[in-house]
């Protein structure tokens, strides 16, 4: 009996010690960039025509990359438009662009109005020798706004855009909507 009591008190002592030493430990499960699938970009579809009007002509491989990245940029701009989720598209923003977005960030919201980009005609105006700067006019871009009641409105508008190649992507750095009254097409 004494042995049993001694044993039980010993076990209880060890258990109490362990209980007091225990702390909740969270091990980060954030996967590295190369494993993070960009679902937003993957699920996005648009049509982009590219016309090169710059003095320096980019090669075909560079144009393929540009087209893919520009589509991804719009995938994230649309996601941002609906949700104010500035983090999801961070890979496609320059630091200045990201800081500007962060200034108007107040947490992610439930989407109310969403937007789709249907078409872009991308006129490359300037292309830097080193392939790191691209300024362009996105002419006759068609953007469709979708309201919660499924009502849609499509607009045609012209934009000037500055893209910079940073890290492994083209990133948006600055923009200007050229027409004050976008043209409603539907």
């Amino acid at each position: 009996m004494i042995l049993r009591s001694l044993f039980i008190s010993f076990v209880v002592l060890v258990a109490i010690y362990l209980f007091l030493q225990g702390r909740t430990i969270n091990r980060s499960s954030e996967k590295p960039v190369f494993l993070r699938a960009d679902k937003i970009a993957e699920n996005h579809q648009t049509k982009i025509d590219i016309t090169v009007e710059s003095q320096v002509i980019p090669d075909s491989l560079e144009l393929v990359t540009l087209e893919k990245d520009y589509a991804n940029i719009w995938a994230h701009l649309n996601h941002l438009y609906a949700t104010n989720d500035i983090i999801a598209g961070k890979e496609y923003y320059t630091e200045s662009w990201f800081k500007q977005l962060a200034a108007s960030y107040d947490g992610v919201i439930e989407p109310v109005i969403s937007r789709k980009d249907e078409y872009h005609h991308f006129y490359i105006k300037n292309w830097s020798n080193d392939g790191l700067v691209c300024s362009a006019i996105d002419s006759n871009a068609v953007l469709t706004y979708i309201y919660p009641n499924e009502e849609k409105e499509s607009y045609k508008l012209h934009m000037a855009i500055v893209l910079l190649y940073q890290g492994d992507h083209w990133r948006i750095d600055a923009i200007k909507v050229i027409d004050n009254n976008p043209h409603l097409i539907e």
């Binding site: 320059t94 630091e95 080193d130 910079l164 940073q166 890290g167």
Partner: peptide
């Protein structure tokens, strides 16, 4: 000094 990738002016060809 930024956690973003190296900017154009800091990239060495």
């Amino acid at each position: 000094i930024s956690s973003f990738p190296t900017v154009k002016d800091d990239r060495v060809k």
